[in-house]
Amino acid sequence: MTDLPALLDRLRTLQVSSVCDADKSLAVVDPAIRPLVPGVRLAGPAVTVVAHDDHLPLLVAIRAAAPGSVLVVATNGGTRAVSGELFATEARRRGLAGIVVDGYCRDRAGLPAVGLPVYARGTTPMAGTTLDAGRIDEPVTFGGVRVEAGDLVVGDDDGLVVGPAQRFAAAIPGAEEVERAEAALLAGMAEGRDLPGMTTLDAHLAALADGKPSALGFTP
């Protein structure tokens, strides 16, 4: 059984790009969904929400979600803001890990001070209605990716990836090795070494030219 708190702690220390290097089959959310608060890292289990041009479902979901959860909001093409500074503040107060919206938010100026990771396709000043309670914890399509309640959502400034906890647990050792190698490469360049010289570039190119299977390696 996966130790979820320990897994999330390790994921928060890693760049999402490193996790993707370790498992290139992970589901990457549409990169048009971007962080509205820069410099944050996000990792937590999904609480899925359907909210089409109505922010009432967010209020219901924030009250129901467990600490550490990420609200994953599908708006099904909505064009109104379904979240903003008030919801982000309440989510942070309750210990949620973040809010990610396949649609629009508002109050961009106030979100950095809240500090909660918030992702969206953009911002608009016009809020939706409060007439439809929406749906919670059912499978949704979010940024082109199917997300089920309990799937892990992991993100940083590069974007979001989603998958079962076991997939991330399996990717962590490889991701940690990627970051050790990259740190060594950066240290080498700081000492004046060139990046191509710290790789197997020539052997890789020769193998490709001969039609042989090959993978670029690093020799920091």
Rank of each mutant, 00 (worst) to 15 (best):
G197E: 09
V153M: 03
T75K: 05
L201R: 08
A183P: 03
V178N: 09
E138P: 05
R80V: 08
T219R: 14
E191P: 05
R80L: 14
E90G: 01
D158A: 15
G95H: 02
P139A: 07
V73P: 09
E138S: 10
V154N: 03
L26S: 07
H52L: 09
L4W: 06
T124C: 13
G188R: 06
V49G: 01
V153S: 03
C105M: 14
L131I: 12
G78E: 08
D132L: 08
A22N: 02
E179G: 08
M189R: 13
A149S: 13
G192F: 06
G44L: 01
A113I: 09
D157G: 11
F87R: 07
A127D: 13
T123R: 09
A109V: 14
P117A: 09
V40H: 03
V154M: 06
T141G: 10
A120Y: 06
L8N: 00
T200H: 04
A203E: 15
L96K: 04
A65V: 04
P38V: 10
D194E: 14
A6L: 11
S18M: 07
R41E: 00
A127T: 15
K24N: 12
G174C: 03
G68H: 00
V49P: 02
E90P: 00
E179Y: 05
T48K: 00
A183F: 04
P57N: 04
V162T: 06
R108M: 14
L26P: 00
A207D: 14
A184R: 11
R167K: 11
S83G: 15
C20R: 15
P125T: 12
A133Y: 07
R41A: 08
G192C: 05
A187L: 10
E85S: 14
M189Q: 13
D21F: 12
S25E: 13
G122D: 10
R135W: 05
E138L: 13
R41V: 10
L116I: 02
A97C: 02
P45Y: 00
T89I: 03
L56I: 08
L7N: 05
V72S: 03
A149N: 05
R108Y: 09
G95D: 03
V29I: 11
G159P: 02
V154G: 01
D137C: 07
V162W: 00
T141I: 13
L201S: 06
H204P: 04
M189E: 12
R106F: 11
Y104L: 15
G143R: 02
V49F: 05
T219A: 13
D53K: 06
A113T: 12
M126Q: 15
V161R: 01
L96N: 01
A22L: 04
G110I: 07
V118M: 10
A187Q: 10
G188M: 06
A209K: 12
N76V: 13
A88R: 03
R106N: 15
D30S: 06
G110C: 10
I136S: 05
R93M: 09
V153Q: 00
V28F: 09
P117T: 08
T79N: 11
G155K: 01
R93S: 12
V114Y: 04
P38E: 10
L96G: 02
